[in-house]
């Protein structure tokens, strides 16, 4: 019985460890022409899902050396993800709403 318990405990630990080792995903909402977070720290390999919670289009992009991308325009309720593969500071903007800005520190 004790052996079964130990095996179960070990299996549980391994499952939890494996889950922790996975890259994380953070959801950043676009609401009222603003990002829900102005700054964010993530690890290399992590992703951010940019979710449009406004009733109009957003178009998130970055021109930073650490991550250069353009997600294109997407409507309310839609979400687009980016995986950050390089450490550094990433400035993120919306091409439709020039006042929308946030900074992601990829560590």
């Amino acid at each position: 019985m004790n052996a079964v318990f130990k095996t179960f405990a070990l299996a549980s630990f391994l499952v939890m460890f494996a889950a922790g080792a996975h890259a994380g995903e953070t959801v950043v909402s676009q609401k009222n022409k603003d990002f829900s977070q102005k700054s964010l720290k993530i690890k290399v390999g992590d992703s951010i899902a940019f979710r449009n919670d406004d009733p109009f289009f957003h178009n998130v992009f970055s021109l930073s050396d650490a991550a250069s991308f353009d997600l294109g325009s997407y409507a309310q309720g839609q979400s687009k993800s980016v995986t950050f593969k390089k450490a550094g500071t990433v400035e993120i903007e919306c091409s439709i709403h020039p006042n929308m800005k946030m900074v992601v520190e990829v560590q």
């Binding site: 109009f56 289009f57 178009n59 353009d70 294109g72 325009s73 091409s95 439709i96 709403h97």
Partner: peptide, 18 residues
């Protein structure tokens, strides 16, 4: 309508709402 709205490259956003 943006590029996609007229059957062209989607990089041009639609500005009709803005």
């Amino acid at each position: 309508k943006g590029g996609e709205g007229v059957g062209r490259y989607r990089g041009m956003p639609p500005w009709g709402d803005q």
